[in-house]
Design a protein around this nucleic acid. Structure first.
Lengths: 144, 144
DNA sequence: TTAATTAAAGTCAAAAATAGTCAAAGAGGG
DNA sequence: CCCTCTTTGACTATTTTTGACTTTAATTAA
């Protein structure tokens, strides 16, 4: 896939977060914009569309001299909200994979399942299926 | 019968999918339209009539800058008998396990899922879920 | 200390780049 | 001649890119 600028910036940030080891980074918006030869608000755009709470991130920032944007990857599994969407469950699976609670194979299989459900099922049924998946994973992994 | 434009585009896409090796491609609708000297909506027409879920494909797309259409070929089981019960799917999973197409871990996880569905969902939803599971497994294992 | 200056980041909306929808018109096979 | 599938295009929806303007914080000058 030919990646859009937004995609590249997103990936770059995610790699930084991974490499940080702490699930958290601080960047300078203008510096990042410089790196990608774009306007600073492009960075803001990426952050506000791909690093939302739903995606499993929290962001903070400060303006003025030595300003920064801090992005933190949150650990969130006990979301008792009874409506789950595709991105949420994907983020959840990503998290389980990262924590080695499931392996690559299980992960891949589950992603196929989520995609299949997303395409073929109505919203209500999707939600039910996602609940079942979360439920089964809870028992399987021992968490929850 | 002379081949229509739609037929040619369909075939072209299918070849691309085959060559991809991953059973999946991403195209730009406008680019493909350019290739075939037709209006973009012609491509949409082909995709929506020949790459449906029933035909064994799922599609996703994104508009805007660097937008794309992603087409994924899914394995589908016989759409003849579309009612599956708990015992049937268990037998199916047993078989996959025996043939080493899935490992013990995946098997265990899926059994949890089936049990969870059996207990928490109405018959119709169970059936839908089982279909999704089989669908995803087909794709995951690569079998028909 | 206070005010002015500078150095960030945020907001918002317009412009650009794609893809989707829908209905009318066209073409071919029965 | 009809019916169905195909082709087209005008209009809509979504996502990304850009830039002008605003807000906030730190630093410097008075």
């Amino acid at each position: 896939m030919r990646k859009s600028l937004a995609d590249k910036i997103e990936q770059y940030i995610k790699v930084l977060i991974e490499k940080s080891g702490a699930g958290q980074i601080e960047i300078q918006r203008s510096e990042l914009a410089e790196t990608f030869s774009c306007v600073p608000s492009q960075v803001t755009y990426v952050i506000s569309t791909r690093f939302t709470q739903d995606e499993g991130y929290v962001t903070e920032s400060r303006r003025g001299g030595n300003g920064f944007v801090r992005i933190t990857r949150t650990q969130w599994i006990n979301k008792v909200d009874n409506s789950i969407n595709r991105n949420q469950i994907k983020a959840y699976l990503d998290d389980l994979l990262k924590r080695q609670l499931i392996g690559n194979q299980e992960y891949t299989m589950l992603i196929y399942m989520v995609e299949s459900a997303t395409q073929g099922l109505a919203a209500e049924q999707q939600n039910q299926l996602f609940q079942v998946i979360i439920n089964a994973l809870g028992k399987y992994t021992g968490i929850l």
